[in-house]
Amino acid sequence: MYTLSSVRVLFTSHIPFSSLLNGMPYLGPVAFPQRCEPDSDKRAMAADVAVHVLSTLEKHRGDVVCGGIRRRRGLSDLDAFALGEDDVYAFISALKDKSISQNEFDEIWKLAIKDLVDNEEVDFVIKEESGHSLLVARNAQIGFGCKLRLKLSTLVKKWRLEFFTLVALFVGYSVALAKIRRASADKKRVKELVKYTIEHMMTSMDDSSVSPYVIPEQVRDESLADVHSSSERQKLWSRVRKTVESNANIQVKQLEIQGDITDVFEWKSS
């Protein structure tokens, strides 16, 4: 209901012979009834209020969607995204021009909410259990970062199986490639250590000032000083020793050295 100050009454009595058309088919009992249209200024103010209301509701929904406002577990979409009409009214009313009376603002408010509902931008809901009226925007106001995050989340949910399969394949490939590279590096290192051990024995044989044999453990500790893991060092050396012992020019003996029986490598005389 609009007050007289807020409407413009358009009388049609000035239309010539308008009364003669009353009751005519398709025109009804009164051919040209009086019409009331909201004042253009009030319409403009209602549109401005509607913009602020919509922005407030969409921002609230965006904050919930993007995690700016924590959503309690089990809360329905309506309860999560909606704001009480009284709360929104109080917030927007505090921004109004002081020259506008509260009664005038109430009329503007009703116009604004009606326009938002009619344009399907906002839903107006009354809770049955409490009777409180709620306003909820149909769209959310979110930033670029949140849009990107939501898009990625949607893609992950949609392609979850394919995504994790791809990740598993990539991890498996990376692990297999690392093992192959490690095995290749170990093989190269074993060759170098075998060569070092044999050269060490040949040097001992040619130098009369040193023992004609070498103690494997001493060679191991010298050649693998850069390998700090005892298990890794033992793993490499076991392969080196196996290769060295299979050489026909090398003889494995057991000698008593400083009271202990110890395996030694000795180069066979030709």
Rank of each mutant, 00 (worst) to 15 (best):
S174L: 13
L155V: 04
K110L: 12
F105R: 03
L148P: 00
F91A: 12
L135F: 12
G67W: 02
N119T: 14
G74P: 01
R160A: 05
S133A: 15
L135D: 03
S76N: 06
Q102T: 03
D186M: 10
G143C: 02
D123S: 11
R72L: 11
K127S: 09
G74Y: 11
G74T: 12
G74H: 09
L116D: 01
L116A: 04
V136F: 05
I113F: 14
K114C: 05
D63Q: 09
Q141V: 03
G172K: 10
N119V: 14
L116I: 14
D86R: 10
R72K: 13
K59R: 11
L116K: 04
F81N: 06
V190H: 02
R182A: 03
K110W: 09
V88H: 05
K151T: 03
E58D: 09
K59A: 14
G74E: 00
F124C: 10
I100K: 08
G131R: 08
L155E: 15
K157Y: 07
I126F: 04
E120R: 15
R72I: 12
L177Y: 05
L75K: 07
E128C: 03
L75F: 08
G143D: 09
V64R: 07
N103T: 07
A140R: 01
R70P: 00
I108W: 04
K158H: 14
T165R: 10
V190G: 01
I69G: 00
K187V: 11
V175P: 01
L177F: 07
K158L: 11
S184T: 13
R73V: 08
G68R: 07
D77N: 14
I100F: 09
R149E: 13
F124A: 12
A178V: 03
E129C: 07
I113W: 12
A80I: 15
D106R: 06
